[in-house]
Amino acid sequence: MSAFDHNPIVEMKDIEKHFGPVIALNGVSFDVRPGECHCLLGDNGAGKSTFIKTMSGVHKPTRGEILFEGRRMDFASPRDAMEAGIATVYQDLAMIPLMSVTRNFWMGREPVKRIGPMKFMDFRTANEVTMEEMRKMGINLRSPDQAVGTLSGGERQTVAIARAVYFGAKVLILDEPTSALGVRQTANVLATIDKVRKTGIGIVFITHNVRHALAVGDRFTVLNRGKTLGTAQRGQITPEELQDLMAGGQEMVELEGSLGGTV
């Protein structure tokens, strides 16, 4: 099954976002289809964060339109986007370290059981589901009341991803999930992305690491100074070309020359 047989779940058309006199986004088009991993690349300040915040309902676009499953959408809040099925995993805001894995997993959507007139949180179900979902992602928890603070950075990202998947996300936006991780943990998170993609969820993978993008990406869109520089399919672009596009070409070539082509 190829991802390209499907219509996009989310389509962003000519998005512009102005903050007062600053034009953060100046015509960005982007879409994601079921079961594909679409990488959004760009250097710092390219507008990646603004763009995904627009997609996840935090910002309202100044101009342009957002289509969700073919219908025009106006997200008033992140909650709206979430209900529609757009889940965002933020780099550092995904989890609360002092709380247990279960409490984090269910935060905001706690399962409730009734005892008489009182409603209690159903910890048995919550713990079972959490352990099961984490096992599916390849993480064996010591116990579901383990504090998230005791997990590694990669595992925390995985809990957040597992949570989004469990609650029926159709599109998963990952904001630099690998940027603070070591080699092994990065590999784990990339493997998780691959697993999730195979279930038919569309993934938007934001990164500035070309190697990470090429490891799992189906399509690559490069953002530079608030504009899309174009979208390439897997196999149609080399790592060097991607790197050049991201950095804005010329200076990078010179820099790379002086560094012996290792960047």
Binding site: P78, R79, L93, I96, L98, G108, R109
Partner: peptide, 11 residues
């Protein structure tokens, strides 16, 4: 624990 993280998931 983290008001912003909690808001993001709808608390």
């Amino acid at each position: 624990g983290d008001a912003q993280a909690a808001r993001y998931v709808g608390v």
